[in-house]
């Protein structure tokens, strides 16, 4: 489904600020895999997301989505395969447009956008059904501007918009990190349910160790632009936070340094 081969990326190449963001990263995800990503500050987790989604292009290496080489495709043309939820709850929705208009935009993912009306009675019905699955009453506020919603509501809507067209790959970049604990829990539960129901191939960055272990069937750990540990389905069963931190110290030779890390 998603194959990353020898992908490297330098920031500010050839200057004194040169930094290795990704170094020879390899990752192979099968259909339905749910991989959580953890790592210290500046480990390259977000760069990995940006390289897959096309926000950045790799300096070396290949990226395949369903067998198609995409590493030189633009962000918008890759979007037909990739659904994304950002860390910032404001980033995934258009605030001055209504809930149903936002959904209409998401509904057209990867399809040509022409002169037919974005919201009509037929797809409004689909939107209402999808919104009611979130269970937070948004289906009764479909003509409200998204800017009026709370951060948690906006993030739940972003999650729905990113997933309801069943993209081949779902990228979650710390999408609960900016929410208060109760909202974060709600969005995490929604994420679990949606990913399981639609059997989405998912890559999720998180700072929450406990969450990284509990969610998904695989786990990868990153440090200094490298994927230093891949935990497969069988190994992940008996994993604990202590053992994970121990592994990190053993491989990287230092303590996990992350000002935002949550041990759970």
């Amino acid at each position: 489904m998603l194959k990353i081969e020898g992908v490297s990326k330098l920031f500010n190449p050839g200057t004194v600020d040169e930094k290795i963001a990704l170094l020879n990263a390899n990752l192979h995800m099968k259909q339905g895999d749910f991989v959580t990503v953890i790592g210290s500050n500046g480990a390259g987790k977000s760069t990995l997301m940006n390289i897959i989604s096309g926000v950045m292009k790799p300096d070396a290496g290949n990226i395949y989505i369903e067998g198609t080489e995409v590493s030189q495709l633009s962000e918008y043309s890759r979007s037909k395969w990739i659904g994304r939820v950002f860390q910032d709850p404001m980033a995934g929705t258009a605030p001055r447009m209504t809930i149903e208009e936002n959904l209409a935009i998401a509904y057209k993912r990867g399809k040509p956008r022409g002169f037919s009306f974005g919201v009509n009675s037929k797809n409004r019905k689909v939107f209402r059904e999808e919104l009611s699955r979130l269970g937070i009453g948004l289906e009764n506020r479909m003509t409200a501007k998204v800017g009026l919603l709370s951060g948690g509501e906006r993030q739940a809507l972003s999650l729905l918009m990113a997933t309801f067209t069943r993209p081949q790959i779902l990228l979650l970049d710390e999408h609960t990190a900016a929410l208060d604990p109760a909202r974060a829990e709600l969005v995490t539960t929604l994420t679990e349910n949606i990913v399981r129901e639609l059997n989405l191939t998912t890559l999720m960055v998180t700072h929450n160790m406990e969450q990284a272990i509990r969610l998904g069937n695989r786990l990868i750990m990153m440090d200094k632009g490298k994927i230093i540990l891949q935990v497969d389905e069988a190994q992940k069963q008996g994993l604990t936070v202590e053992r994970l931190l121990g592994e990190f110290e053993r491989i990287s030779g230092k303590k996990m340094a992350d000002d935002r890390v949550v041990l759970g």
Binding site: S53, E75, Y76, S77, S79, K80, I82, G83, R84, F86, M90, A91, G92, T93, A94, P95, R96, M97, E101, A104, I105, A106, K108, R109, G110, K111, R113, G118, M161, A162
Partner: peptide, 18 residues
């Protein structure tokens, strides 16, 4: 809609393939 979203949140509309 995609034109309006471009002015409102260009990052979002790119992530939906416009």
């Amino acid at each position: 809609l995609s034109l309006r979203a471009t002015g409102d949140n260009s990052r979002m509309i790119r992530s939906f393939g416009a």
